[in-house]
Design a protein around this nucleic acid. Sequence first.
DNA 1: CGTCTTTTTGACCATTTTCAATCAGTGTGG
DNA 2: CCACACTGATTGAAAATGGTCAAAAAGACG
Lengths: 251, 251
Amino acid sequence: MNIAQNVKICKVTCEKCPLQEAAFFRAFTPEEARFMTSFKAGELNVEPGATILVEQSHSAHLYSVLQGTAFRYKTLEDGRRQIMNFLFPGDLIGLQGSLTGEMQHSVETLSPVILCVFERNRLAELYREFPSLAYDITWMAAREEQILDESILNVGRRSALERAAYLIAYLYARARAVGLVAGPRLKMPVTQSLMADTLGLSVVHTNRTLKRLSGLKLIRWRERGCEILDEKRLLQLAQWDGLSEQPRPYL
Amino acid sequence: MNIAQNVKICKVTCEKCPLQEAAFFRAFTPEEARFMTSFKAGELNVEPGATILVEQSHSAHLYSVLQGTAFRYKTLEDGRRQIMNFLFPGDLIGLQGSLTGEMQHSVETLSPVILCVFERNRLAELYREFPSLAYDITWMAAREEQILDESILNVGRRSALERAAYLIAYLYARARAVGLVAGPRLKMPVTQSLMADTLGLSVVHTNRTLKRLSGLKLIRWRERGCEILDEKRLLQLAQWDGLSEQPRPYL
DNA sequence: CGTCTTTTTGACCATTTTCAATCAGTGTGG
DNA sequence: CCACACTGATTGAAAATGGTCAAAAAGACG
C-alpha cells in the first residue's frame, strides 16, 4: 500500500485560500481566516492512488481537501470493499476519528491531492474561540449525513440502472460545484471498478449497466471517466432532486 | 398518516434527566444542565406508529429522544422505502434539517415516545455559550456518520444472511446500551417488514433469511421481536466488531 | 513494442423478487 | 362466544436481477 508521506513546508495562508474564490463556499470573516491560518499545521501533498488514512489506525490529524479528489471506503475481512463517499475540495477528512481516536474507514486519493493538516487536539480550542467555525463543522457533518442517507437509499432500494444514474448525477453535481467539469465531461479519474464498489454491484454488472445508460444516450463512457449527456433524465431515472445549491462552509 | 401532536406541559428539568442515570452517557456539568433546562422548550408525547417528521417539510424544532424508539427513513416517489437508522433514548432528531431547513427524511415512532423539544434558532446561542455542548452535537453527528458508513457497507457488500446478522446484532447492542433488552429478548417492536426496509431486501426474502438464522440457532423470532441466542456468532457471521462501549454524550 | 490495467462479452449459476396463497394472532362488534 | 376484518408471518413456484468464471479486446504507459 502506497502511504502518503511528503509533508510540504509551503503553506497557503487561509486568508488567501483559493477556495474562497468559489461562490459556492461561504467565505471566512477576517478573524476566522486569521485563526484558521494558525490552526492549520501544514500541507500534505499526496500522489494519485495513495492512502491517506487506514481503517483501524489512529491519526493525530484532521485534514481538509484543498485540491484534488479522493474516496472513503471500508473493507470486510475477506476483501470485499465498499466506497462510502467521494471527497472534493473543501471536504473534511477524519472527523469521525475524533470519537474513539480510531479510524473506521480508509481514504485513498484519485488524483494528486493537496491537504490542509490540522491538529486534532486543538479542536476544543476552535470550539471555544470560534463558535461560527464549530457550527460550520457540524454543518458539514450533517451534510455528510444527508449524502450518506441518500447513498443508503440508493444501494438499498434502487435498481442497478437507477443506482448508476444516481451516482453519476451525484458525482457530476459535486464536481461541477467545485469546477471539476469540462462541458459534459467529469474531470475526475473514476474506473468502473470504483463505481462498482460504490454501487454495491460486481464490476461485470456495473459495466453492463453503464452500457445500458450509454444505449439510452444518458452518458458516454470514456477512458476512466464519464460524459454526462442528459443530466435531467439521469435525475429523473434516479428519482433524485439533486444537491442543494446554497453556499456551504468549508475548512 | 398519523401526525404527532399532543405537546405536554410537564417538563422534566435536565438537571434531573433520567438518562443521566445510565453510565453509558456522559453526565452534564451543573452549568450545562442548567443551560439545557432553559434550552429545552418542552416535551412531546407521541403514540406508537406516529410520524414525528416528514420528508420535505420544514421544522422549527430539533428533538431528542427521552424515552422510546423510532426510525428514520426515506421513500422514493413510487413508494419504495428505505430505513436509514433507528433512534434510541439520547439520540438527536432533525439536526440535518439545520442546513436547508428542509427535512430530507421522515421519522416514525415504534413505541410510545417522549421527545425533548428544542428551538432550532437557538442553536447558535448554544454554540456561543457552551462549546462543550456544541462539541457533543458534533460528536453525535460524527457517530451517526460511522453508523451510516457501516450501514452502507452492510447493504452494499454483505449477503442477505450476513446483513440480517449485522442488523440484529446492531439493534441488540444499541438496545442493550439503553436498557432495552430483557435477557436475549429485544424490547422493541420490530416487524419483518421494517427489517426488510432496513436491509434493502423484500419482505419475503427477509423472512426466509431470518428463518435461516433461526435454523442456525443464532436467533429466534417472536411476535414482533427477536431473541438473540448467540451474539458472538452473529458478529462473526457479519464480520463486525460491534459498537464502541465508551460513554457518549446526549442531548 | 510488450506489459499492465481497464473495459467488454458470453455462458452459466445463484440470489433475490414477484405473485399468489395460506396461516396465525389480535381486536371488534354483534 | 363467534364471525369478521386486520396485520404480520410463512410458503411455493416462476421470473428477473445480478454474480461468477473465463477470456478477449482496448487502452494506457513505460
